[in-house]
């Protein structure tokens, strides 16, 4: 049995309860969700990413992300044989409409989906002057849009470019790891719509989560490890040229 299927089964009973509440129009009352029992993260299995842009579109649909801003996006890398320090990267409209045919022949070509790394030592929450962005007890970096000043300091502090100011609310915005879904037993919109299973939601506190086996048996890397942010988005097969 493969990872995705097993993972779906793990979520199944909770999701079934959740769904009843969603149908009844009271999703907030959904499952018996305990903050202390989860520590969310995500696994990106790069050799499976086909750059279709489904995740970017799904995220926009699920979270009303304004045009031109991205909670998740996909980059395309082109690296020539001996020059890993100078990759050619593009991400037309964040990969939302997929990618045009690659112009550059030769070398290495691959896609890299990006999203908030939900760092355990997040530089963005560190700098928030008022406590409007924070790490939730279940390990998700969130923004309280009713409390955010819109000072943009967190946007500056994120090493990965994952934050932006929503022009409608004038507050900071970012990936919530679909907090409204994962707390109801569903997976994130990007994972749900990924056709190849390149993105998988993982709960590090769940001993039955296949993530543990996967992390043990694969070469795993996080983005910009030298930033020491304790990023929780784990990449399998990440090339050294990716930044």
């Amino acid at each position: 049995m493969n990872v995705t299927r097993r993972h779906m089964l793990l979520l199944l009973p909770a999701a079934a309860i959740a769904w009843k509440h969603v149908l009844a129009g009271t999703p907030e009352a959904a499952p018996n969700y305990k903050l202390s029992e989860h520590w969310w993260s995500m696994l990106i299995d790069l050799p499976k990413c086909i750059g279709c842009g489904n995740c970017v579109r799904a995220c926009q649909t699920e979270n009303d992300v304004p045009d031109g801003y991205f909670r998740t996006w996909v980059e395309r890398y082109h690296v020539t044989d001996y020059d890993i320090e100078n990759p050619h990267v593009d991400s037309p409209d964040g990969g939302k409409k997929g990618f045009p045919p690659s112009k550059e022949e030769g070398g290495k070509n691959f896609f890299v989906p990006k999203l908030c790394n939900h760092c355990a030592d997040s530089p963005c929450t560190q700098v928030c002057p008022v406590g409007a962005t924070f790490i939730s007890p279940d390990g998700v970096v969130l923004v309280d849009k009713k409390y955010c000043l819109g000072c943009r300091y967190c946007v500056q502090a994120c090493p990965y470019g994952c934050r932006f100011i929503n022009p409608a609310t004038e507050t900071a915005e970012k990936c919530t790891l679909c907090y409204h879904r994962i707390t109801k037993g569903l997976t994130t919109a990007c994972c749900e719509s990924c056709p190849t299973g390149a993105r998988q939601l993982a709960d590090l506190k769940n001993p039955n989560d296949p993530i543990h086996e996967f992390l043990k048996t694969h070469s795993i890397q996080v983005l910009k490890p030298y930033m020491a942010t304790h990023a929780k988005v784990f990449y399998n097969g990440l090339d050294g040229s990716v930044r």
């Binding site: 999701a15 769904w19 969603v22 999703p27 907030e28 699920e62 569903l186 919109a189 719509s193």
Partner: peptide
Amino acid sequence: AARPVNFAG
């Protein structure tokens, strides 16, 4: 967490 879902799953 109270936000409604768009993808049913």
